[in-house]
Structure formats: structure tokens, C-alpha cells
């Protein structure tokens, strides 16, 4: 009796708190939307539905920001980073979890050391390294360093998964005549699908939203990620609030759309990602 009596108001409080949080979360988006629909060149108010919504602002922002090229560029970068990162991290995770003794724990610790490393700590030498490789201002300037920078988390993540796979399966595969390579592809990878899926989602988001590397290593916004291009877009159109807001909304639309589509997977990945990271 007491339990129900005391939890009911609690639930009410909790719900109102959550609804308040949701409103706070959504307000910036709504405010941007209302500004994006204001007539060009005006100075709109914070949140005010315009009398005559200018949906055309989105078209103009799309053209001005060359959204099609940006989408292509971001996609190319993601395709360059994510599959390779996931593959080599899965291999390393398997190697570290299943093939090494405690004697090689240090190797794993070397990877883990990078988990808390701020990208800013290596950005300066990365610039000179990428320049020496002749890759400055190309998409590879973003792709190659990102693969390396993602390794600590990705390897840590995949190793944690493989540690939970019963060792008997490895031994059964060995007795069934599988080489390590075959065991990896035919037994381990299919079983690791959920972990690989989450890792893919996280790396996709982080790559798509990466800002520091494009800003430092790539001058041309058309070779950057979406987020990097947004920086340039703001620099150029920062004073035209309706255009800026329309452009920002367009630029954040792709990930939000994917997120809404795969809501469950994204939430799971982000939560686990935080816990394990």
C-alpha cells in the first residue's frame, strides 16, 4: 500500500521533470526552425512563427552551402574511415582477447592509454605529418588520422566483446579444422555482429560530426565533413541568421534522419559506448 501511495506522486514529478527536459532539449531546434523560416535579411525573434514562412530559405541554403557536394564529401570520408577501422579493430580485438597470454597485456594497455587522449594533444604534429605525406587539403588528411585515432576505443570495444565469447567455440573450431583466419571469419565475426553494428554506428557519428581535423587539415570546405563545412558556412554567412539556421538544420538533418530511422540501435550504441569508453 505504502509503495503505491508514495510512487504515484513520484511518477508525476518524474514525468513532469522529463517533459521539461525534453522541452529544453527541443527548444534550440524549434528556435532555429522559426528563424530559418523568417524572411531573408530580417532579424527574427527567438521563437516566433513567421507570418509568411519562407521555406525557400532551405532551398537557398542548400544551394549556397553546396549541400550535394558536402553530402558526397562526408559520405566518402565515412566510407574511407568506418569499414577499415571496424575491420582492423575487430581483428585486433580478436587477437588480443583470444590469442595472447597475460604476457602481452601491455600491448592492450598501450591501446587503452589512448582512450582519454584529447585529439588536440596530437593535432599539431598530425598537421606536419600529413603535410609531409603530401595529403594536406585532401580527404585522406581526415581519413587516415581518424582511423588511427579511433583505434583505442574500437580495439577496446571489440576485445571486450571477444572476451565474452566462450573459449570452447575457438577450440571446437580448431578441432573442426579451422585455421585462425577461417575461425575468425566463419565463427567469430558472425557472432560479433551486434558489437560490430554498434561500433559502426558510433564511428559513423563521430566521423560525420568530426570538426577539429577538417578545420586544421583541410582548407577547402568541399573536402571536409559536414560538421567541418558548417564551420566555414558560419564564417561566411554568420550574419544572415535565417540562412545560417536553415543551413545548420540541413547539415544536421542526415544524422538525425538516420537516428530516427535506427533509433533503437543508436541509443543502445551510444549508451554502451559511454559505459565502455
Amino acid at each position: 500500500m505504502t509503495a503505491t501511495a508514495t510512487t504515484t506522486p513520484n511518477t508525476l514529478i518524474a514525468r513532469s521533470l522529463i517533459i521539461l527536459l525534453m522541452i529544453v532539449t527541443l527548444l534550440p531546434f524549434l528556435s532555429m526552425l522559426s528563424a530559418a523560416l523568417a524572411p531573408q535579411g530580417t532579424y527574427p525573434n527567438g521563437l516566433q512563427w513567421p507570418a509568411d514562412p519562407q521555406w525557400g530559405n532551405f532551398v537557398r541554403a542548400f544551394e549556397v552551402a553546396k549541400m550535394d557536394q558536402l553530402l558526397l564529401s562526408s559520405t566518402l570520408i565515412v566510407l574511407g574511415v568506418v569499414p577499415i577501422s571496424v575491420l582492423i579493430a575487430t581483428m585486433a580485438g580478436y587477437g588480443l582477447a583470444k590469442l595472447t597470454t597475460n604476457k602481452y597485456k601491455w600491448l592492450y594497455l598501450v591501446f587503452v592509454f589512448g582512450l582519454t587522449l584529447p585529439f588536440e594533444a596530437v593535432i599539431t604534429p598530425l598537421y606536419y605529418e600529413v603535410r609531409a605525406l603530401g595529403l594536406l587539403n585532401t580527404r585522406f588528411a581526415i581519413i587516415l588520422p581518424l582511423i588511427g585515432l579511433y583505434m583505442p576505443f574500437s580495439v577496446y570495444w571489440m576485445r571486450a566483446h571477444f572476451l565474452n565469447v566462450p573459449h570452447d567455440l575457438t577450440e571446437a573450431a580448431q578441432l573442426d579444422g579451422a585455421t585462425r583466419w577461417k575461425e575468425f571469419w566463419l565463427v567469430q565475426v558472425p557472432l560479433a555482429r551486434p558489437a560490430i553494428m554498434s561500433l559502426t554506428i558510433l564511428l559513423f557519428l563521430w566521423t560525420w560530426n568530426q570538426f577539429l581535423l577538417p578545420v586544421v587539415l583541410v582548407q577547402d570546405p568541399m573536402q571536409r565533413t559536414m560538421a567541418g563545412a558548417l564551420g566555414a558556412f558560419q564564417g561566411q554567412w554568420g550574419t544572415d541568421i535565417p540562412l545560417l539556421c536553415a543551413g545548420s538544420l540541413l547539415i544536421l538533418a542526415p544524422t538525425v534522419a538516420l537516428f530516427l530511422l535506427f533509433q533503437r540501435q543508436f541509443v543502445a550504441a551510444l549508451m554502451q559506448g559511454a559505459v565502455k569508453g
Binding site: L205, I251, T255
Partner: peptide, 27 residues
């Protein structure tokens, strides 16, 4: 879904959204 939205968008977009929120005519 709603509470995770800020995690999904680029931090840059959050920055722009809030620049607008905090602007003199902002919300």
C-alpha cells in the same frame, strides 16, 4: 529519442543553435 538528439548532431550545430538562443534577439 528526444534526449539523445543532442548526442547525434555535430557539436558545431549545437554551438550555432545556442549562439542563436543566446543572441540579443534570441529565445
Amino acid at each position: 529519442t528526444v534526449l539523445f538528439l543532442p548526442q547525434v548532431i555535430p557539436l558545431v550545430a549545437a554551438g550555432i543553435a545556442w549562439s542563436w538562443m543566446f543572441a540579443s534577439t534570441g529565445l
